[in-house]
Every structure is written in C-alpha cells, then in structure tokens.
Amino acid sequence: MVHIVREFEVPCPQDAAVAYLADFANAVEWDPGTVSCVRVGDPAAPVVPGATWTNVSKVLGRETTLTYELVTLEADHVVLEGSNKTADSRDDLRVTAVDERTSRIRYEATITFKGLARLTDPLMALVFRGIADETVDDMTAALTRVAR
C-alpha cells in the first residue's frame, strides 16, 4: 500500500476549491500522472456523489485506466475512489478556509495494489512521494487560476 499526505495553502476560497476538486475531470490540470479524465454520462450534469470518471494515468511510462467515483462531497471534504483490476485508489481532500481568499488543503492519497502488483509497493511508494510533491505544485497553480 502507498499512503501519501500533503498539507499546503492555496490562494483560493474554500467553496471554489471544493467545487473544482470535486469535478475529477479537472485532475488533468492538477495531477501530474493524469493523461485524461472524462466524466461518464452527461458532462454537464451536476457533480454529486455517485458521479464517475474514466481516468487514464501514466506512471513509470505505463498507462493504466481506473474508474473513479465521487463518494463524498461536503463543504470542506471531497473523496474520490478509483479502481481497476490491479489497484484501488482513494483521494481524500480536506479543504479548510484560512480566510475569505485562502484555503488549506490536506491531500491524502492511498493506493492499494492487488495480487502480484503488491510486490511493487516499496518502489511505488518512492515514485508516488515524488508525484505527490508535483501534485502540490500543480494543484496550487490550478487553484490559483480558479480564484482569478
């Protein structure tokens, strides 16, 4: 299992940050591993728990497709869970208002590999630590654009 936690502040109001992060199609802007992320069904439909996306990510030169579902959407909390035959992924995002224009993000990512893929846990833990640092930079830049 890979477990990563990062906490950082962004110059974006809490409500705008939560709305942006809940729409997982935006992952192409803030997740450095995401190649594409397309909403299943009507992309114009409201983003509510139960909404799903097909996410294609590339890690170590290999592409993998996961189906993600928005499982929690609250004023300060977004949880997205993805899965395929080799892994389960959970992105748990807590968004706390620091003031009217600034939010504190607590980003917790957990990836549980299945079957023989579990043997890659030590390597993938190192890889995802680096990706998590890039994610902080990319998410900060994306939420800065959202706030403008």
Rank of each mutant, 00 (worst) to 15 (best):
P11L: 13
P11H: 11
P13H: 13
P13I: 04
Q14C: 09
Q14H: 06
D15M: 10
A17L: 05
V18T: 08
A19G: 09
F24D: 10
A25T: 09
A25E: 14
N26Q: 08
V28P: 01
E29N: 11
E29D: 08
P32R: 00
G33A: 07
G33Q: 05
G33Y: 03
T34D: 05
V35E: 04
S36T: 14
C37G: 12
C37S: 14
V38R: 14
V40L: 13
D42R: 05
D42C: 10
A45N: 10
V47T: 10
V47R: 07
P49I: 15
P49T: 12
A51M: 00
A51E: 01
T52F: 02
T54N: 08
T54P: 01
V56N: 00
K58P: 01
G61L: 04
R62V: 13
E63C: 13
T64N: 12
T67N: 13
E69K: 08
E69C: 07
V71E: 04
V71N: 07
L73I: 06
A75Y: 06
A75M: 00
A75H: 12
D76E: 09
D76M: 08
D76W: 01
V79S: 10
S83E: 15
N84T: 13
N84P: 10
N84W: 10
K85Y: 09
A87T: 04
S89N: 02
S89A: 15
D92Y: 01
L93S: 07
L93I: 15
R94M: 07
R94T: 13
R94E: 14
V95G: 11
A97N: 05
I105R: 08
I105T: 03
R106Y: 05
Y107W: 14
E108G: 00
A109K: 04
F113C: 04
F113N: 01
